[in-house]
């Protein structure tokens, strides 16, 4: 008995005292290590690489800020940047659209589950398939869009071949699944809306838009926040649709930063790792602005509680 207590005190010395603090770190350790190695480390690597000129094969040559200087004079870079901004703005339409579809579907009718799944369907389909479907839809010779335009007496248009329309055309394709995603977020949010508050609002004479704006929407704040985050990130990640629908064309008019980076550094004709890294750094800084905002507003919310 005495022996056991001696071992116990010896064992309990350091580990026992700090167990409470250490355990979470031990559990977190694998995650943190992977995050450091696969996310944080490559970020600094990209920063470093953007100061070099390197074809991915031979010797890297240090060129200082030359790559950034070149970005400054690169028309294609500004086209991509402009398209990124258009993507960010128009893609946000998915949030109100998702909200209205969710409100519409939030009722008890026979078979409502089926309707809900049908509306959710585009989000399940791969982006590549969405891209292909819309490419055929827009096809200037065989596509249904021009048939429809013709039926209402409008001239035919080549959406994906016109440098002014192409980005909008791709975004519309992207909105289809993204709206479904926002819709599902809001549907879950609507389940948590407090019926008593609605009741109270109704007694005070709130109806229609006022009811929506002052009673429902504030209660959906968490859902709106998540929808906003995923939509912004989705807009900045837009790559597969562009790759499938236009391959960046016509003459580079539909490129965004992520696609341009891929083209410059990794595609068939790309051998400029340093330049690609410089574009990646710019894209990272844009994303950082949003991420910082999200973190800040989450922090604020925690404090308010």
């Amino acid at each position: 008995m005495a022996q056991a207590s001696v071992t116990e005190t010896r064992q309990s010395s350091w580990w026992h005292r700090n167990q409470q603090q250490l355990t979470p770190w031990l559990f977190l350790a694998p995650g943190i290590l992977f995050f450091l190695f696969y996310v944080i480390f490559p970020i600094f690597q990209s920063f470093n690489l953007s100061l070099y000129e390197w074809d991915g094969l031979g010797q890297a040559e240090f060129v200082g800020l030359y790559n950034y200087d070149e970005l400054y004079y690169d028309d294609a870079f500004y086209t991509s940047l402009k398209n990124n901004v258009i993507w960010l703005l128009l893609y946000l339409l998915a949030i109100p659209a998702g909200l209205f579809i969710a409100l519409f579907l939030n009722q008890t009718v026979t078979g409502i589950r089926l309707y809900k799944s049908l509306f959710f369907f585009p989000f399940v389909i791969s982006q590549v398939v969405v891209g292909l479907v819309f490419t055929w839809f827009y096809d200037p010779t065989f596509g249904i869009l021009n048939v429809l335009l013709g039926a209402v007496g409008l001239p035919p248009m080549n959406v994906l071949g016109d440098e002014n329309w192409v980005t909008v055309g791709i975004i519309v394709a992207g909105l289809w699944p993204q709206t479904a995603y926002c819709m599902i977020l809001y549907l879950t949010g609507l389940n948590a809306v407090d019926p008593e508050q609605i009741e109270a609002g109704r007694l005070d004479g709130a109806k229609g838009w006022r009811m929506l704006w002052y009673i429902i929407v504030p209660q959906l704040r968490p859902a709106t926040f998540i929808a906003f985050v995923v939509t912004i990130i989705g807009a900045l990640r837009s790559f597969d649709l562009i790759s499938v629908m236009t391959n960046g064309g016509p003459f580079g008019a539909s490129r965004v930063l992520s696609f341009y980076m891929f083209e410059v550094a990794l595609s068939e004709y790309g051998f400029r790792m340093g330049y690609g890294a410089a574009i990646a750094v710019v894209l990272f800084l844009i994303m950082l602005a949003f991420i910082a905002y999200f973190l800040w507003s989450m922090y604020k919310e925690e404090r308010a509680r």
Binding site: G161, G249, P250, F251, G252, E263, E268, Y269, G270, F271, R272
Partner: peptide
Amino acid sequence: AEMAKVAMEGLQEFMV
């Protein structure tokens, strides 16, 4: 490769 990419994009633009 790099020149080919830029140039062919220009050729496409010229055709349109």
